[in-house]
Amino acid sequence: MSVPPSLSPVELAGIGALSGVVEVAIQQPTVSWKNSIQQGRPISFNPMICYRGVFINAASIAPITCTQFGASRAFENLIVDEGQPVSDAVKVASSTCAGVVSAGICTPSELIMIQQQKHGGSLLSTARNLLSTHGFSIFSRGAMPCIAREAVWAPCYLSVVPIFNEKLSNFEIFKGSPYASWATGATLAGLIGATCTQPLDVIKTRMQANLEPGTFNSFIRTAKVVAQDGALFAGLIPRGLRIVGATFILSSTKDVLVNKALQMKATV
């Protein structure tokens, strides 16, 4: 569903934070498997290992989706005058900008999670070790591919799903089956997001997993090495499953919470 203009950026930010926590709680193992494949480590189905780093992931995803939901509405309000309809182009542009903004949270939090999954230890000890060993600048490691990834991924679930749903619902095959058009749109948006952002995610993971001086310090050099290794789409299956699942979970959770928020506002 399209988000009604009556909901403010702050209200949508809260909805985004809750949606993000739900998504991580369900899908953390796919993150672990994806990172293991991209780093050339064996995957584990042990829940104690699969859910290693879940707290930093949840603690990071909540503000990320909070930022993406809220900033997308804020950008819409900047572009479109109050009471005017929001075009599909504006929705996509606003959610793209929101994705770029959210990369400021994604980059350091994913660095900590990847290092925690690689070496073990607590969240705080991992962050302290990174700071003492590499300095504060290490928390910007992988920022460029992360910005590009989020600029593509955020509009996929925030804007493309409702756009696809609206377009698909006009086809005869989907008439009378609103869930079918929504599910098809969410699947297509998830597949597009996963495929288009996978190389960027692999490059970011390699940069954040290998912190010693050398090849992986640079986005361009890392991209060349990953391409030469034929690994640009490494981990696509677990990450693709996660992205498609995240598209479903975030979109459906958003719809439920938006309806609840509208009901609460109507009773006030």
Score class of each variant (00 low, 15 high):
K118S: 10
T267S: 13
K34W: 14
I61Y: 03
I203K: 02
P63S: 10
A180G: 10
T197N: 00
I192T: 11
E76L: 00
H134I: 00
T133K: 15
T133G: 10
G16A: 08
K34T: 15
D88L: 00
L232W: 11
A17Q: 11
A93V: 05
P162N: 11
I43F: 01
C50G: 14
A25L: 15
V10F: 14
F171E: 06
A246N: 13
C97N: 02
F171P: 00
L262D: 00
T247E: 10
W182H: 11
I114F: 06
K118D: 08
L12A: 04
G16N: 12
G20A: 09
M264Y: 14
E82V: 10
W153T: 08
N35W: 13
L168S: 07
I243P: 07
A227I: 02
L168M: 09
S140K: 13
I114G: 01
G240T: 05
P5E: 15
P108V: 03
K260P: 04
A71Q: 04
N129R: 06
I243G: 02
F219C: 07
M1I: 09
V161P: 09
R141D: 03
D255E: 14
K118F: 04
I26N: 05
A180P: 07
I26G: 02
W33P: 12
F75E: 00
P178L: 03
S2D: 13
G240V: 01
P155F: 07
P47K: 06
D255H: 12
A17T: 12
I243E: 15
K175F: 05
C97Q: 02
E172A: 08
L241M: 14
V80I: 15
K167F: 05
Q115H: 02
V3N: 14
H134P: 05
V100R: 07
